[in-house]
């Protein structure tokens, strides 16, 4: 017994090192599996408040860009509204209303954005208090940003599409060929669309949008355009390099999307999986 105590006392630095290193490895492995990064994430009170103060100072530098983006978005929405008004006589109004009522949009401000790591996250200033929940989609007026992964009372952390763990259902705009949007860590401007059938008529310049298969994003949210594509090593699908519409390095305000029918869709899909 005496010897065991002596051994512990003699090697206490080494034991503390082993313990702490093991703990950090545990955190690291947890953060690599989806929905398990519960302990270490920036959506808590302390980091949220620090980023809030920093953002309060920093946001003034981006006001010009933000204004331009808002103006552009306004122009687009005005175009849609005024064109719709002309068509409402012909179109049935209920159709468009039905579409809109399945999704609820909330605006939020980005407090922290990273894009230089391989696992990137954003922190936004809305949380449980504003009924933001895990698995809500996050977009800007230009395109998709990511998916909410953790929420606290006032803040949420968002899994960016620039993250090796991100996998988003996407499709070609002109046909219904679907694939998955992933990121190969090389550039913040490009993401990759994989598993898209080689029968799909892919051409450079085609638009890629979100597919309707996930319950997170509505169908047809803009992602980017085809920059280049090649057949993957298996030989039966394309790997498409997608140039993102969003400048992921400069994101100020975002919209969080709630799918009001997510639970209904999920409960319908569940028995099929078994």
């Amino acid at each position: 017994m005496q010897q065991i105590i002596n051994f512990v006392l003699r090697n206490k630095t080494f034991l503390v090192f082993l313990l702490l290193f093991g703990l950090s490895l545990f955190f690291t492995i947890q953060s690599h599996s989806y929905h398990k990064s519960k302990f270490v994430n920036s959506s808590n009170m302390v980091t949220g408040s620090v980023y809030q103060v920093a953002n309060g100072i920093g946001q003034y530098f981006n006001l010009a860009d933000e204004n331009k983006a808002l103006l552009e978005e306004n122009r687009m929405l005005k175009t849609i509204v005024h064109n719709l008004k002309l068509d409402t006589i012909k179109l049935s109004v209920t159709d468009s209303l039905k579409f809109n009522s399945s999704y609820k949009f909330r605006s939020a401000e980005v407090y922290k954005n990273s894009y230089s790591q391989t696992t990137n996250y954003l922190t936004i200033n809305k949380g449980k208090k504003d009924s933001i929940k895990v698995d809500y989609g996050v977009i800007t007026s230009q395109g998709i940003v990511g998916i909410v992964e953790n929420t606290s009372r006032n803040f949420s952390s968002v899994l960016s599409i620039l993250n090796t763990r991100s996998r988003i259902n996407a499709q070609l705009k002109k046909t219904n060929h679907i694939g998955s949007l992933v990121w190969n860590t090389e550039s913040a401007e490009f993401a990759q669309l994989i598993d898209i059938s080689k029968f799909a008529p892919v051409a450079i310049g085609d638009t890629i949008v979100t597919g309707g298969q996930s319950t997170i994003f509505p169908k047809g949210v803009l992602i980017g355009t085809v920059n280049s594509f090649k057949i993957d090593t298996g030989g039966d699908s394309y790997i498409v390099n997608v140039k993102l519409f969003n400048d992921m390095t400069n994101i100020g305000h975002v919209y969080v999307i709630e799918n009001l029918k997510a639970t209904e869709i999920k409960s319908l899909q569940k028995p099929k999986d078994d």
Binding site: F21, S24, Q30, S37, V40, T47, Q117, Y121
Partner: peptide, 23 residues
Amino acid sequence: GFFVDVFSDSGGVHAAASVTLAY
């Protein structure tokens, strides 16, 4: 390392590297 990790959403990578460095 842990504080830097919490702020940059990186799991425990900075903590692991710092602990090793200190040792």
